[in-house]
Nucleic acid binder design. Structure first.
Length: 579
DNA sequence: TCTATATCACCC
DNA sequence: AAACGGGTGATATAGA
């Protein structure tokens, strides 16, 4: 803690109260900030904040800003038009990193951290009542204003108590890097993803009807739907009437998974339309997307939420959460373009680089690792191509993915619809071709088991419990370093002035004026390549780009069919004007 | 009628 | 005991 104090001219503990609803940016209500060296206290209400051109505290190189969930603080800075702090220490992120993988008795909120470090209760934080008071949106009486400021300050005081505890085990340079990512998160959350709100409104208006129409046409021959819900009981009746035997789960329930449906539809083709209907319906949710008044999708990206350090935004609120066909709603506004840029086979590349396996690296750099693997294993000729040996490539691809997740031969066999011996052979070929990788991977798992901890290049760590899932340990270096790579890229993309709409695990969505789009894509790809080289000690990963230019919309091959079906239905419904 | 659990579907 | 990594969320059914 003394080191930390000595490292900065001033250390500000900061907290805002704000109103954030739907996909809108926060409406700032008040600010409380304490300075550690001087004991200075700031309590500012929103009318006072509105008069400030910049933050009432210095945010330069010699200053540290400390907060629990700093992305929210920084997002308030951006909203107010203030400068973005140079150095950010996020106590939430550091608490997550110090305890990641351990069972937390009280969760990961401020209270949880307090309890974990054995601190006394948080004091006067009548949470629900004051929070409700804030969300009424005012106007507030003088007493209420004091209560809200007190409430806001209680978090600052709590952070002040928490700081020495967190600082105890702090790796400052890396913590500041994580803080930089929280700044990037604030900017991405502020910027958001452009949505075709006109179309979204139409879809929402007709949602129930669209579902009903889809069901009505198909269910005529089955009678297994009541309203829009599939009834197992009715389905059982149908099966009995039609003399169809059906697999059951260990629990005795009918096995209704799509896999089973697929298999059964093969033997009983008349089931196929029902299967398609079930698939379509299961994908239809768009009710809770968080869209701001300006037509942009914004939501909490939940950075460092997953054990691997990945973001974990709500799949309901985030446009990249639901089924891919709904991404057709992503549309740049006039004069703008978007680009979805992702690293090619990121986890395979990371495995190759970190393990130092020469053959794996070579396969990655060939541009088609799956086919290269098949060639290295001697399963296809050297001049084989994606088209000349499609089935082989698919199997070797499935094998690579299986290895990444620690899949066994049985599941792989099922996956590629091949006998066990084929799956076993593929897995054996992987072990034989990539010996160095396997040695490294097993070493990492052993290390985790021995020392109870695993971490990434930049120190995102996970504790290993008494009964760890070995497949998690095996996958962690790839997934967690992938997350590290994405964070670094986001920081640097934004520092280069590129508008980043959203991070998506191994990809980013960026936006630019049409006149500059190509140039900015090139710059972004360079930055992403550099980020991979930093994480992987010089090894570079390639990127793929999908550019979308106004008036086009985002389109994903996997979702085209569903998108078109729904839009056709929508057109007829709009045509009828029955609303 | 409400809640808990199991199961499933989706994303990377 | 199971054996596909990290997740969120919806829904149908069982049980209180």
């Amino acid at each position: 803690m003394d080191d930390l104090r000595a490292s900065f001219k001033s250390i500000w503990l900061v907290n805002f109260e704000f109103i954030a609803e739907g996909g809108n940016n926060p409406e700032v209500v008040c600010l409380v900030a304490h300075e550690l060296h001087s004991g200075l206290v700031l309590r500012l209400w929103r009318d006072e904040l509105g008069l400030l051109v910049n933050s009432p505290y210095d945010v330069g190189e010699e200053v540290l800003l400390v907060s629990y969930c700093a992305s929210e603080v920084v997002r308030c800075h951006i909203t107010l038009g203030w400068d973005i702090p140079s150095n950010v220490l996020d106590l939430y992120v550091e608490f997550r990193n110090q305890t990641n993988g351990l069972p937390l008795p009280c969760g990961t909120a401020l209270v949880g951290a307090f309890t974990w470090y054995g601190l006394d209760s948080l004091g006067c934080r009548e949470k629900p009542s004051v929070r409700n008071l804030i969300h009424t949106g005012g106007p507030w009486t003088d007493t209420e204003i004091r209560a809200i400021l007190d409430y806001c300050e209680s978090d600052v005081i709590a952070s002040e108590k928490l700081l020495p505890k967190v600082a105890d085990k702090l790796d400052l340079p890396r913590a500041l890097l994580r803080g930089s990512y929280m700044k990037a998160v604030a900017q991405m959350e502020f910027f958001g993803v452009p949505i075709d709100t006109k179309l979204l409104n139409q879809l929402q208006r007709h949602w129930e009807t669209i579902k009903e129409e889809l069901i009505e046409r198909i269910d005529l021959q089955y009678h297994v739907y009541q309203g829009t819900t599939f009834k197992q009981e009715d389905f059982l009746d149908y099966l009995i009437e039609n003399d169809i035997p059906w697999p059951r789960l260990p629990s005795g329930q009918l096995d209704l998974s799509d896999d089973t449906f697929k298999a059964m539809a093969k033997c009983y083709p008349r089931l196929a339309p029902l299967r398609e209907l079930r698939t379509a319906l299961s994908q239809m949710r768009l009710g809770q997307l968080a869209i701001g008044k300006d037509g942009r999708n914004r939501c909490h990206l939940a950075p460092y939420r997953a054990r691997t350090g990945r973001n974990q935004p709500s799949t309901n609120k985030f446009i990249f959460g639901p089924s891919v066909w709904l991404r057709g709603l992503i549309k740049p506004s006039e004069g703008f373009g978007l680009a979805y840029i992702d690293w090619c086979q990121q986890e395979f590349g990371i495995a190759a680089a970190l393990s130092g396996d020469p053959k794996m690296k070579e396969a990655y750099q060939s541009g088609d690792p799956y086919l290269a693997f098949a060639k290295q294993a001697g399963a296809v000729p050297q001049d084989a191509t994606k088209t000349s040996h499609k089935p082989e490539r698919e199997q070797f691809k499935a094998c690579v993915l299986a290895v990444q997740y620690g899949m066994g031969a049985e599941s792989l066999a099922q996956n590629i619809n091949q006998p066990m011996y084929r799956a076993k052979e593929l897995l054996r070929l992987h072990r034989e071709t990539y010996k160095v990788f396997w040695c490294w991977s097993e070493g990492a798992v052993d290390h985790a088991m021995l020392y109870g901890k695993l971490w990434t290049t930049f120190g995102w760590a996970v504790h290993v419990d008494q009964n760890p899932n070995p497949r998690f340990l095996q996958n962690f270096p790839m997934q967690a370093n992938g997350a590290e790579m994405l964070r670094l890229a986001c920081i640097q993309l934004i520092e280069a002035g590129i508008k980043v709409c959203a991070p998506i695990h191994d990809a980013v969505l960026i936006e630019a004026p049409l006149t500059e789009l190509d140039e900015i894509i090139e710059l972004a790809q360079q930055i992403m390549s550099d980020a991979s080289a930093v994480i992987l000690d010089g090894f570079r990963l390639n990127t793929d780009v999908d550019a979308i230019r106004y008036p086009d919309r985002y389109s994903d091959d996997r979702g085209v069919e569903m998108w078109e079906t729904v839009l056709r239905l929508l057109e007829t419904l709009e045509g009828q004007g029955n609303d």
